[in-house]
Design a protein around this nucleic acid. Structure first.
Lengths: 243, 243
DNA sequence: CCAAGTTGTCTATGATACTAGACAACTTGA
DNA sequence: TCAAGTTGTCTAGTATCATAGACAACTTGG
């Protein structure tokens, strides 16, 4: 990359610096509100030009993770999104309650057939036609999670197009006459982001994710959709209420 | 990166292609000796210029993973290094037996103090002075593992310098009069490569590693060194003899 | 031998990445 | 008020990244 590199790795220097700083924030070395070291000092620790540091900080500022104040310093903005797990969980409401702006984005919609596990979750027979929606959710400009959602193709024909238009699962269900729904049991595990999700979540390489599997039901308890979501672990914390 | 990218990710296109191909090899989609698709076909599947594919293949060839034959095609060279786990395990012998050239490289040597666990492994008291050696091992030009080795600073004064000169743990021990040694119990687990090791192992992002913890003893059973090694899982397979 | 398909090499162009130095604009604390 | 430290902006030069097209050199199968 730079002149000094003996062999280019294919990863830009500014990205390495940005990942390093983001990691420092994720690890708690820099807390929300903290002042980062000066650009010159960061440049010295990473042994790069100050402009390269500025590129890295600009990328972080673009995502709302840090905020530069001229003459004063650069400060950490990032805060983990508090994500309460209740039976009535709406992404847009959670993000809005945090004072941030929710966004949805469709990655891909395709036809699929139910595996035995999916069929059990959705109360269908194995092999039943499904619609698979791959989507992404952001708070302000920071990607929060990628999720794969399956719905019955018979109950929700053309669901992919509806989601593309509304970019909201709640509105999609409304479109088919579902006025309210509840989340059933939620399974949470952890893992490491794979290459595809890393690119989508704009996540530093090799970082942990929270994996959430859940099925939403209507008020009669009939399964509507089942989801497999991957959250950037460093950008969210799940809150489980006791009692 | 490219003109078509809306936002540059900081990772070069050729690196994404190279990682994709290496992943294909690691996953077994391309076996050793197989012919890869033609450069034009690869360029189409990744939607990049043929020259970008050539850059990716050159990087893989540089590491001995593929081999190009003019007029014919590009073939997979990579083969997992068979790594027998015996009480008498010498990296250089294993690699040599595979017809490849072993290399050692010192990353860092520093002073350290024994944690309770390290002290127990080495038969010392907690807080005892240690020397910590961070080293890397390669077969031909492919990195195989990164390992952290701890030795007693009292038994092996200046061990860091000796390792830097000899680049071999066996020779280091010989330097202090240890003629032979045996490996004790070996603990194997798996994990995901962290950012630092990923860079050192030149490993595609988010890939699994084999984690090996072991302590070497002299012939009287006295602990000499204890190691924490991280192997690129896709480049090695451990062989455990039964009986 | 020939045609098709492969890798190797060349030239060319434009966009990015990184470094370097200088100075402006601003904040903070003494 | 002033000096020191901070971020913001500008110009400039070199190297890398990626694309594009053309053709050479070679292998393979018929």
């Amino acid at each position: 990359m730079s002149m000094q590199d003996t062999a280019s790795s294919g990863v830009a220097l500014w990205r390495l610096v940005a990942d390093g700083i983001e990691r420092g924030i994720a690890d708690g070395r820099f807390a929300a509100g903290d002042k980062l070291p000066g650009e010159v000092e960061i440049a010295e620790t990473y042994r790069v030009n100050r402009h390269t540091v500025r590129r890295a900080l600009a990328a972080l500022a673009e995502r709302g993770i840090v905020r530069a104040e001229r003459g004063s310093g650069t400060y950490v903005e990032a805060q983990r999104l508090a994500y309460p797990l209740r039976s009535r969980t709406r992404f847009s409401e959670i993000v809005g309650a945090d004072g941030r702006e929710p966004h949805g984005r469709l990655i891909e919609a395709s036809d699929d057939v139910a595996t035995r596990e999916l069929a059990r979750e959705l109360g269908l027979k194995a092999g039943a036609p499904l619609i698979r929606i791959e989507a992404m959710r952001l708070a302000d400009r920071t990607p929060i999670c990628v999720s794969t959602t399956w719905l019955s193709a018979q109950l929700f024909p053309g669901a992919g197009d509806v989601f593309a238009a509304t970019r909201s699962m709640t509105k999609l269900l409304e479109h088919y006459g579902v006025r309210d729904y509840r989340r059933g049991a939620t399974r949470i595990t952890a893992g490491i982001v794979d290459a595809a999700d890393a690119a989508r979540l704009d996540l530093a390489l090799g970082r942990p994710i929270l994996v959430v599997d859940a099925t939403d039901h209507d008020l009669d308890g009939k399964p509507l959709v089942t989801k497999h979501s991957r959250f950037a672990a460093e950008r969210v914390e799940f809150l489980v209420e006791n009692g």
